[in-house]
């Protein structure tokens, strides 16, 4: 143990106990609501009184055709928009890493801090404006466009963070050994960027799958997503079916995150 580390431990001994108790409470605040939510999804009763273990709410979720449709729509939207935004965002991050552009990175950050509701209504306004000339209407493709639109900035930020840890000399070495710029990008930079790109894609996937505010504004009649169904149910009050579908979402995404973390470690 290094002396400075030891000192930190020593200092922490006094104030550390208080901090430890506080941290335990803070983690309870962060996690207990979700844990409770999950536990009561297995409750036989409709009310928040434990009456016994039951899967009836899961049965209700799986036999609801509206829920199945919405889930399928969400999956399609999430996968397509993630694929597009990951490619666009990664290429942009790489080009910005090579040479900065204040205008583009400024726009990226600005789109990140734009309140969701503003993004939603401005895209709605754009689509409605375009429909004056085109005989189209809101639908799955407007939802996908909107999702691509808000995911690109997230992808670019995450990939940029990874690029910052990269040694520019690696590409120079590749070109010195005869690789063209494109080949150097493909054979040297892209492989070492992979963990960052995977993380970015996962972030885009979760954000897309979760989005309600923007989606609800630009969705058409045939493009109801899962969050829209959940939201409509929740506005009518709590319902154990929502607990069940929430649990499924948390568990599936938790598993995806865990697996990707494992893959990154090995």
């Amino acid at each position: 143990m290094s002396p400075s580390l030891a000192a930190r431990n020593n200092q922490a001994a006094g104030t550390g106990r208080g901090l430890g108790v506080y941290a335990a409470l803070a983690y309870a605040f962060l996690h207990l609501p979700l844990v409770t939510l999950i536990v009561f999804s297995f409750n036989a009763s409709r009310f928040t009184l434990w009456e016994g273990f039951s899967l009836r709410w899961y049965r209700a979720v799986f036999t609801d055709p509206e829920m199945a449709d919405a889930a399928w729509t969400s999956v399609v939207v999430a996968i397509v928009s993630t694929a597009i935004s990951t490619i666009v965002g990664t290429l942009a991050a790489y080009a910005l890493w090579k040479r900065r552009s204040r205008l583009l990175s400024g726009s990226l950050y600005l789109s990140l801090v734009t309140p969701e509701i503003v993004t939603g209504v401005s895209l709605l306004a754009l689509f409605q404006w375009a429909f004056r000339w085109l005989n189209w209407q809101l639908g799955l493709y407007t939802v996908i466009l909107a999702h691509v639109s808000f995911s690109i900035a997230y992808v670019a930020i995450v990939v940029s963070a990874r690029l910052r840890t990269l040694d520019p000399a690696l590409e120079e070495a590749a070109m010195d050994l005869g690789a063209t710029e494109w080949r150097a990008f493909l054979r040297v930079t892209l492989p070492s960027l992979m963990p960052g790109i995977v993380a970015a894609a996962l972030l885009a996937l979760t954000i897309s799958f979760d989005d309600y505010v923007i989606t609800s504004l630009v969705a058409g009649v045939d493009s109801t997503t899962l969050p829209m169904v959940i939201y409509a149910m929740a506005r009518r009050g709590a319902n154990p079916s929502i607990n069940a579908i929430s649990t499924l979402i948390v568990v599936i995404f938790g598993a995806i995150i865990l697996i990707s973390e494992r893959m990154r470690e090995t």
Binding site: L34, T206, P227, I230, I242, S246, V250
Partner: peptide, 19 residues
């Protein structure tokens, strides 16, 4: 443990408090 809830749906987390 801090980041984990951030990765789960914001809608679900808000619903948890409704519940």
């Amino acid at each position: 443990l801090v980041i984990l809830p951030f990765w789960t749906s914001f809608l679900v987390r808000t619903y948890a408090w409704l519940f």
